[in-house]
């Protein structure tokens, strides 16, 4: 690359390169590598993080790992997060893909629709969590009111009463009717999943960009061959979008395992730990119980799980992601 040039020029070039990259390199060592090593180290200690490490930290060997096996809340938090991720991710991918397909139509005022569907994403944060908190209020919230108005509550009630087995199933899953949403152990997670679907705008935009790249002539040829809309969608749109779907899937999985703020603010893990998500549990262990060692173990397990899932999707991508020859 720099071969043949005089030694001094080479040295100077390297120096300049490292100098320009210095802010990141500094950050990388001080805020990423260093902390990672320290966190790994902490896994084997019992320490509250506040008192002096030398005097108060105790080496406990693998104790922190052994503790996991008997920690019911750890398993509960893991299960809650997995439940949330495995429902909200596929639903989110499907919903944003559908929405993008609708918004790809050439209709007047489409930009307005796109803005509207994207807006919840821009505004996401504590404020919109408050908005949903109020919306999900079982008694005064708009959601149950609308469900009553549209008759869904009555319809399902009728089903519960008249279709054999439904009442039994509802009882088995401990589903109340009408839903008490965040106040009910069984409805709390579905309520948060529903809320996550309000934010499909981000994914929608990614798919819209992907749709613009699908060559139009494929559709024309398929149409001439007599393929209907559904077929064109299944055999052209979806295969051509698989790289986009792949990217969105990976990002959504990573994001969904880090769900925290919603449950911290709306339910604080309740009712009966139904919304105690993994990161919330980690936060409690670290910053409320001050068990830094144990919390570090939890953090590394989270990392391992996210990494494992991402690698799984990556491995499987060979089977279902289609890269057009010339593009990759």
């Amino acid at each position: 690359m720099t071969g043949g040039k005089p030694f001094l020029t080479r040295l100077q070039n390297n120096g300049q390169g490292y100098l320009f990259a210095a802010p990141w390199l500094l950050g990388f060592f001080c805020l990423t590598v260093g902390p990672m090593v320290f966190s790994l180290f902490l896994c084997f200690f019992r320490w509250d993080g506040i008192t002096s490490f030398r005097d108060h930290a105790a080496f406990v060997g693998l104790e922190n790992f052994r503790r996991l096996a008997n920690d019911e809340l750890f398993f509960k938090a893991f299960w809650n997060t997995a439940f949330y991720a495995f429902l909200s991710v596929p639903l989110g991918v499907a919903a944003s893909l559908m929405l993008a397909t609708l918004l790809n139509a050439k209709v007047r005022g489409i930009a307005l629709f796109r803005t509207l569907f994207y807006l919840p994403n821009v505004l996401a944060g504590v404020a919109t969590i408050m908005v949903w908190f109020w919306l999900l209020n079982p008694e005064f919230g708009a959601l149950n009111f609308l469900l009553k108005k549209v008759g869904i509550i009555g319809l399902v009630q009728w089903g519960i009463d008249h279709i054999p087995g439904v009442a039994g199933l509802m009882a088995r899953w401990e589903l109340s009717w009408p839903p008490l949403w965040l106040a009910d152990e069984s409805w709390a997670k579905p309520a948060l999943i529903l809320m996550s679907l309000w934010n499909v705008g981000g994914g929608m935009l990614i798919y819209l960009a992907g749709l613009q790249n699908v060559p139009q002539h494929l559709y024309e040829v398929a149409e001439i061959d007599g393929a209907g809309r559904l077929r064109r969608f299944v055999y052209i749109t979806i295969p051509m979008l698989t790289p986009t779907i792949f990217f969105h899937l990976v990002m959504s999985i990573i994001g969904s395992f880090q769900v925290f703020t919603q449950s911290f603010i709306m339910t604080n893990g309740g009712p009966n730990n139904a919304t105690l998500f993994y990161v919330l549990y980690l936060y409690r262990k670290a910053f409320q119980h001050f068990e830094m060692g144990y919390a570090s173990v939890l953090a590394w397990i989270l990392f391992a799980v996210i990494l494992g899932l991402t690698l799984m999707v990556l491995r499987s991508s060979r089977l279902w992601v289609y890269y057009e020859g010339e593009r990759r």
């Binding site: 070039n13 990259a21 670290a286 953090a299 989270l302 990392f303």
Partner: peptide, 30 residues
């Protein structure tokens, strides 16, 4: 710029995107 190790560092940079912030959160606090 051209500097020794640039491409390796770039891969490292991309890899850091995978790291969940929770892993470094506790050391950062300390």
């Amino acid at each position: 710029l051209r500097w020794v190790g640039r491409d390796v560092w770039f891969v490292v940079l991309l890899a850091t995107m995978m790291l969940p912030p929770q892993v470094t959160m506790i050391p950062h606090y300390i």
